Simulated assay, not measured.
Amino acid sequence: MKKTFLLPTFLMLSTPALAESDPLQACLDKAGASTDGIIELCSEKASETYKKQITKSYNAIFAHYQKTEPEKAKSFEEAQKAWLVNRNKNCDISDSKQKCLMNSNKQRAEELSEREKTLAPVESVQKPPLLSPKKDIMFDKKENVKWVMDGEKQSAELTYYFQTLKTGLDWLDNLLLQQFSPDDKNVTREKIISALTKSYNEQKTEMKESYSSSSFWVKQSISFVGQKSNLATFISNDQGYYGGNYEVDQDKYLYIDLVNKRLFELNDIFTKQGLEEVKKLLWETYQQMDYKFEDIKKSDFPVSNIFQIHGSIITFYYRKSSIAISAYGPQELSISIDGLKTFIKSEARQLFE
């Protein structure tokens, strides 16, 4: 149901444009006098004119937000209620309540009128596409690499599997494909398949020449988690077993802005000062851990743009150049979102709600 903010009963719901640029002066000119009583009466009439303009602009802006940005419609409604309360309190203690109401209504009418003029037509507002991605297996090879050592046949399993998604949007397909690029440049499908084929063949040759009896496998995939308005969430999963005890299984969450066609990064979520505060909190949290390394300095503690939001927790991942994986230190630390909300940019709160 469409929600319309109802002003007090004295604020009429008719919406004519302002008949005069200065309704107070027009009333005084018509009266032909400026006694205190006439000024009071004309102030009241002018105030009513401004109230009608407030209602007209408010309803137009609220309806626009309901269609384009529902979260902003709610905030706009609350702001109008707060303005009314503040206006009434200020004018109750004014020397001339009627003049105060008129001036406040005039100022608000002008503010809302200007905001109404800046609204883009609803039909021109870009709507995010609804995604239904399909699997796109671009490389899938598996074989037993065989050789003979000391007269006996030996073998080890070699597996390469790479799977991305087809979303129907070329820019998004390329962005997802970029997750398989080691240099962030080699993003065409053909070039990536060529690089994978070369790597596969080189690994097969190395296994034969080194007589390795350990399996070697790499599996990388992109999966679709879901979509909320203009925000789509994907997971890039990286698994691998490289012989011996070196095994990897890592998830990287990708938050995609479908309207602006790009990845959400920490700078999109936090203000500059807020991100500095986040880094301080992460450092303090790390200092409280039972298991940490004394040679890790605060200056070596930046965070990457890899992060995960799950329920009421946001997990930050550290740059591998400063805090490496495995024995060299932790890869990640998690902090409650409630402890970070004061640092979060309002336009990014959709990630956290």
Rank of each mutant, 00 (worst) to 15 (best):
P133D: 00
S132T: 12
V122R: 01
L112K: 00
A120M: 09
A109M: 06
S113L: 06
E114D: 12
E111Y: 07
M102I: 00
S124V: 13
K99N: 15
K97H: 12
E123S: 09
C91M: 02
N90M: 12
C100G: 03
R108S: 05
A109L: 00
K134V: 15
Q107T: 14
P129S: 07
N90V: 15
Q107Y: 05
A120D: 01
E111M: 12
K97L: 04
Q126A: 11
S96E: 12
S113E: 10
I137W: 03
Q107R: 09
E110Q: 14
D136R: 10
Q107L: 11
D140E: 09
E110Y: 04
E116I: 03
N88Q: 08
D140R: 09
P121F: 05
K97C: 00
S94D: 12
E111D: 14
C100Q: 04
S96Y: 09
C91S: 05
M138W: 07
K97Y: 04
M138R: 04
N103M: 13
D92K: 06
E123I: 13
K89T: 08
D95K: 13
K134L: 11
E116T: 08
C100I: 05
P133W: 01
N88A: 00
E116R: 11
E114K: 15
E110G: 04
R108C: 02
C100T: 05
E123H: 07
N105H: 11
K89F: 00
D92C: 03
D140F: 00
A109N: 05
K99Y: 11
Q126P: 08
K97I: 02
A109H: 03
L131P: 02
D95M: 14
